[in-house]
Simulated scan of single mutants.
Amino acid sequence: MAVEITHIDYSDLSGGLVRMMDRFKEKGTLTGEIEDDDRLRDDPNAALLGLLYDQRVRAESAFTGPLRLKDRLGHLDMATIAEMDFEPFQEHFSESPAVHRFVNKMAENTQKVAAHIADEYDGNAANLWSDGADLDTIEKRLQDLPGFGPAKASKIKYVLHYFGHRDFSDEA
């Protein structure tokens, strides 16, 4: 389904996320598939993991990686993912096409992020941002997660805005 999103300035960014937002302006889809965009809008855990995976792979592959994982597991329940034995989890992660090219490290980071979200945010990534926290606070919360440094955390504004999890058009 086509989604109406107010565009915000992303001229401070470069790379794959910019390509995705440019595509959204032109064609109404971030990932290239409306259905995948909708699934990322419906699942804040998937959107967060997509940002985690946005590293040394095409951004579209990074953001659809959590959807592949969800299809294989039947869920993105963070507590369940955190508690899975690593080897079986890694096998799901590495099925072709792999969730991410760096299977071992990203599978490990996924379980660490899942544990943090399960423990600190009641298993729901939306709780990182849905309490009305300002952008600086959200970015600081992200930097507490494995695999999220300042540069990656600074992209959360665009991920949340364009995937419809939080409107940042007033802050543009």
Score class of each variant (00 low, 15 high):
I34G: 00
L69M: 05
H165Y: 08
F168I: 06
S11C: 07
Q143T: 12
F63S: 07
L69Q: 02
R41H: 02
M21K: 09
L13K: 08
S61V: 14
I156C: 05
V57I: 15
D136W: 06
D42W: 09
E35L: 08
E4P: 05
I138V: 14
R41V: 00
E4V: 11
L76N: 10
K112F: 03
A125Q: 11
D77F: 13
V3W: 13
L76H: 11
A153T: 07
F24C: 10
L17R: 12
I156F: 13
K27C: 03
I8A: 08
L40W: 12
S14T: 15
E87V: 12
K157Y: 03
F102M: 11
Y121P: 01
S154M: 09
D144K: 15
L67W: 12
N109L: 05
G149C: 06
D119I: 04
N124K: 15
K157V: 08
G65R: 04
M84F: 03
K105S: 12
T64D: 10
S94V: 01
A2H: 12
A62T: 14
D36C: 08
T6Q: 12
D167L: 14
E60N: 07
D43V: 03
S96Y: 14
E171F: 13
I156K: 04
D12F: 12
H92I: 02
D43T: 13
H92S: 11
F24L: 11
L128M: 12
Y162T: 11
N45W: 02
V57L: 09
K155C: 06
G132S: 09
L128W: 07
F24D: 06
R58C: 01
T6E: 13
L67D: 13
L73H: 02
